[in-house]
Simulated scan of single mutants.
Amino acid sequence: MGSKKKEIALQVNISTQELWEEMLSSKGLTVVDVYQGWCGPCKPMVSLFQKMRIEVGLDLLHFALAEADHLEVLEKYRGKCEPTFLFYAIRDEALSDEDGCLSHDEDNGEDEDMASSGKTCTLAIIKPDAVAHGKTDEIIMKIHEAGFDILTNEERTMTEAEMRLFYQHRAGEEAFEKLVHHMCSGPSHLLILTRSEGTEDVITAWRMLMGPCDPDVARREQPDSLRAQFGTEMPFNAVHGSQDRGDASRELALLFPTFKFSDEVPEASLGPGARSGGPH
């Protein structure tokens, strides 16, 4: 008698920070069912997931489970009484090349228009040093004057877990711990920017407005830039911006998992739906 073939689990259980980071590096689309321990994951969705994975293929579509109480990065979802699904995408040749944009998950009939607008989005952060010095409103005014549209502006104090993941590409640098500590030291303003005017894409335009990373260099080379005007010294340089389109997608996915994007932009929240085990 031949041996029984081992069944591959449809949904991978993400229970540690290491598994979470490994999941974020997976090529293709990963759908994460964020659940509460008292409720359990969403069983009615499993049959739909199975059908979707058969149609799309095993290499491009992945499903995962994550209990909110087990991961610091999911702290904001603890105690929720509705299903939450997060979508993370890493570009692959098989995925669309079109630019994505964002729309807030509100049932107001505007999601489809915003998602199909074709505008590129980027992340901007007004850092704790600028917020503490009362410069937020002035920086936002300069952002508007430079022709940017602010799709969302959220004041938030980031967690250490978020910032270690956010800056994981700089983990080997001497200033890494100081940077993480600074970014968690007080409230920041997290903005999602797009741009309807000018020929530059929003990522390049925002980096030009910020100026060189070091405020001293910015004051010499681009005295009108935000870092020249509002930064003091490294890492207290007032603002952050995504390096390129790949970084923008990754950073937006990490810090704004309750927004949804079309095409390559990586996350969405499906909102309320059927879930077994009581309300979620």
Rank of each mutant, 00 (worst) to 15 (best):
212 P>G: 08
180 V>D: 00
142 K>W: 03
114 M>V: 00
54 I>R: 15
20 W>C: 01
222 Q>V: 01
124 A>C: 15
199 T>V: 11
168 Q>K: 15
167 Y>I: 09
2 G>T: 00
76 K>T: 06
34 V>L: 15
135 K>R: 13
187 P>A: 13
118 G>V: 03
165 L>Y: 12
194 T>C: 13
111 D>G: 13
189 H>T: 06
196 S>D: 10
31 V>T: 11
231 G>D: 04
97 D>M: 02
195 R>D: 03
81 C>G: 11
28 G>T: 04
260 K>P: 03
175 A>F: 10
189 H>N: 08
45 M>P: 00
86 L>G: 05
262 S>E: 03
229 Q>N: 09
149 D>A: 11
241 G>H: 08
7 E>R: 12
184 C>S: 06
235 P>S: 02
203 I>D: 03
154 E>A: 06
208 M>F: 06
83 P>E: 00
271 G>Q: 05
57 G>S: 06
74 L>F: 14
267 E>I: 00
266 P>H: 02
91 R>P: 04
28 G>Q: 06
137 D>F: 00
3 S>W: 06
61 L>A: 09
9 A>C: 01
86 L>Y: 08
140 I>K: 15
8 I>S: 07
68 A>T: 10
22 E>R: 07
157 T>F: 08
205 A>G: 06
20 W>E: 04
175 A>H: 13
183 M>S: 02
106 E>K: 15
90 I>Q: 09
135 K>M: 09
212 P>R: 09
159 T>Q: 05
37 G>N: 14
87 F>M: 14
16 T>A: 10
257 P>Y: 00
159 T>I: 01
58 L>F: 00
253 A>Q: 12
14 I>D: 02
5 K>G: 03
37 G>W: 14
12 V>S: 13
179 L>D: 03
202 V>Y: 01
145 E>D: 12
183 M>H: 02
19 L>M: 12
16 T>V: 10
41 P>F: 13
232 T>F: 07
141 M>H: 13
255 L>A: 08
203 I>G: 05
277 G>E: 10
22 E>C: 03
16 T>K: 13
8 I>N: 08
36 Q>G: 09
94 A>R: 14
